[in-house]
Amino acid sequence: MLELRLVQGSLLKKVMESIKDLVNDANFDCSATGFSLQAMDSSHVALVSLLLRSEGFEHYRCDRNLSMGMNLGNMAKMLKCAGNDDIVTVKADDGGDCVTFMFESPNQDKIADFEMKLMDIDSEHLGIPEAEYEAIVRMPSAEFARICKDLSTIGDTVVISVTKEGVKFSTRGDIGTANIVLRQNTSVDKPEEATIIEMETPVSLTFALRYMNSFTKATPLASQVTVSLSSELPVVVEYKIAEMGYLRFYLAPKIEE
């Protein structure tokens, strides 16, 4: 038996909107630790890793580890029917072939339940090694989204370079080139507007903007995003989910042949 009650149901709505276009089908894994997902996009270029820790739920019951295969587009459709202030409960029976999403309005005057069929998904779980990243950039998530969107109107790829001068995002296309440099800025009044650059070694990597733009659909989840870079490693774009966990996107770099 699985029963997860999330008072801030909008978090789950936002998570689904962030990943539904990147990943078609995925297994949600439930254990004592929390509700998690790891899935690759169909071309195996990007990987999504989600963790919602059990402590973040108002009620968390998971009698035994359970893996539930879901079509993320269909799950997103159902969660879209929840109000932004609704409490969302996810329920499933051990060995059952469906999952129920229950939506309760804040004053309990509307209760809805949506039942969705589960599917068997043969997914490959990858081990993600702990890595010491050469450069970690923390910046406003809306700024990161803006840069990715702007650059994708010029070119298809972005070169992200971190030096002691700052972080540079560059692209080139048929019409010309673009470079955007952000410097460290910790002097802002609000911490969510800060840009913090931690650099061990200068690093420069090339990525497909199409994927970066897809990751930025998670912008409503967090005011800040962390971009971790190491040469020869996938970039990690992380959105923290307040007091519950994270949504991380890993993207394989483009490599010179």
């Binding site: 690759m40 195996h44 270029v45 990007a46 990987l47 490959e124 779980h125 990858l126 081990g127 993600i128 090694p129 790829t157 090339t206 497909a208 490693l233 996938p234 890993y250 993207l251 394989a252 770099p253 483009k254 490599i255 010179e256 042949e257």
Partner: peptide, 14 residues
């Protein structure tokens, strides 16, 4: 042009 890497060449199957 640089070639797109595959995520599975960086992270091993469990």
């Amino acid at each position: 042009d640089p070639k797109q890497g595959n995520i599975m060449s960086f992270f091993k199957k469990k």
